[in-house]
């Protein structure tokens, strides 16, 4: 994955979030405070405006720039969480203009750990981690088993989609949905859903020759 694809992926995330803004907000209305789509859309719109200034930068600098922009525009919990994720991923891609499958996995791992650290959360609490953790594991297993990035990431996206489904079956213990206790059952987590979108767009961009 080179800088061009990274920039295309960021633009694709912005487009996807804009398209799904109302759906994400509706999911958040059901178990949260109904602003997830609105906040992410505001943040990624401003990231999109900044994209031209990232054009000649290395991947680490691009991801870090995206993270900083998200932190300063999204607000809510998802701003610091996604912002930290992109900044941490940027740290491990410092100076690189092309990511190998292993680099991509290392970046995703750093992003996931950043979210765990900032949110003091683990898997199974009905959060974005329920999409991201299984996705990372499937991606890593695929790469370790000799798969190329596209195939391994396809496994990761499948695992994330299953993770989103899984959030319907569990009670939230982190974030605002935790107050609902068993009333949060049956609802899919908006954060896990937006995380799935971000992984899906990476795969789509990679598949475009």
């Amino acid at each position: 994955m080179d800088t061009k694809k990274i920039l295309a992926r960021i633009a694709a995330i912005a487009k996807k979030i804009e398209a799904e803004k109302d759906f994400l907000t509706q999911l958040d209305n059901e178990i949260g405070d109904g602003d997830h789509g609105i906040n992410l859309s505001r943040g990624f719109k401003s990231v999109e405006e900044k994209l031209p200034t990232f054009a000649d930068k290395d991947i680490g600098a691009i991801l870090k720039g995206v993270g900083t922009q998200l932190v300063s525009t999204v607000g809510g919990a998802s701003g610091p969480l996604y912002g930290t994720a992109f900044m941490k991923a940027g740290n491990v891609c410092k100076g690189k203009f092309e990511l190998t499958a292993e680099d991509f996995a290392a970046a995703l791992e750093a992003a996931v750990n950043g979210i765990k650290m900032r949110g003091k959360a683990v898997e199974g609490e009905k959060t974005m981690l329920d999409a991201l953790c299984p996705a990372y594991k499937a991606l890593k297993d695929g790469i370790d088993g000799g798969k190329n990035l596209i195939d391994a990431l396809a496994d990761g996206v499948d695992a994330a989609a299953k993770g989103v489904e899984y959030t319907k079956t569990i009670i939230a213990t982190k974030g605002r949905a935790s107050y609902l206790k068993e009333r949060s059952l049956g609802h899919q987590d908006p954060g896990a859903t937006s995380s799935l979108y971000m992984l899906q767009t990476a795969l789509e961009v990679l598949r475009e020759a």
């Binding site: 906040n39 932190v71 300063s72 809510g76 610091p80």
Partner: peptide
């Protein structure tokens, strides 16, 4: 002050 019902961001 953040956006309506949304926390302000760290830089502000």
């Amino acid at each position: 002050a953040g956006a309506v019902f949304t926390s302000p961001t760290p830089d502000k």
